[in-house]
Structure formats: C-alpha cells, structure tokens
C-alpha cells in the first residue's frame, strides 16, 4: 500500500479529532478527541519511518504514546477535581477559574 494512503488517513483522523475538540463541550469527549489527534500524528510518524527506512519515527511514536499516557493521567485528575467543585462536565462551566 502506498504511503500516501496512510497519510490521507492520518490527515482525516486529525481533522475528525480537531472537530471534536472544537465542537464538543463535554470535557471527557474533548479529551478523547485530543487522543484521536495524537494518534493521527503517530500514524504519520510511523508511515514516514517506513518511507525513510529507519526506525527513528517509530521511536518518536513510542515517546508520543508515553506522553499521551502521562497527559491522560493528569487531565483526568483535573477533570475529576473540576467535577468535584462544579458538579458538571461541561467546559463552559469551567471558564471561570478564579473561584
């Protein structure tokens, strides 16, 4: 399969994730959309790793996974903390951070 097809899939996945981030209000769904975007970038990295016949791209994708895991842990903890104080998952309710 030509690498271009993989890149197109990656671009489509990135835009789908971006639409979720921009259009949804539920914090958890927005977070999952961020995961979709990260994975789209990962797919492009692995594809280019194959195109250039070196493994560095796969190492970069691996590090992206590690960072994504750390990000999810912290993000979900923040979501839980906000939910405790606001009793809501909507991002609109969390716009006031001063309280």
């Amino acid at each position: 399969m030509s690498p271009n097809a993989y890149l197109i899939v990656s671009a489509v996945l990135f835009c789908v994730g971006l639409s979720g981030v921009l259009l949804r209000r539920n914090a958890l769904v927005v977070f999952m959309s961020v995961e979709v975007m990260l994975n789209a970038a990962n797919l492009a990295l692995v594809t280019f790793s194959k195109v250039h016949s070196v493994l560095d791209g796969q190492v970069a994708a691996f590090f992206t996974m590690v960072v994504a895991a750390a990000e999810v842990v912290v993000g979900l903890a923040i979501i839980i903390t906000i939910f405790r104080s606001k009793a809501s998952l909507s991002l609109d309710d969390a716009r006031r951070l001063r309280h």
């Binding site: 399969m1 030509s2 690498p3 271009n4 890149l7 197109i8 671009a11 990135f14 835009c15 790793s49 194959k50 195109v51 250039h52 016949s53 493994l55």
Partner: peptide, 17 residues
Amino acid sequence: LLLTAIAGALIESPGDL
C-alpha cells in the same frame, strides 16, 4: 490544506524497513 500537501508531495517508494 493537508490533503493538498500530501497530493503535492506524492511519495513514490513505499520504503522498506
């Protein structure tokens, strides 16, 4: 934009790992 970029830089060789 992304699709145009991909179409403008079509990769011929699939590469070999």
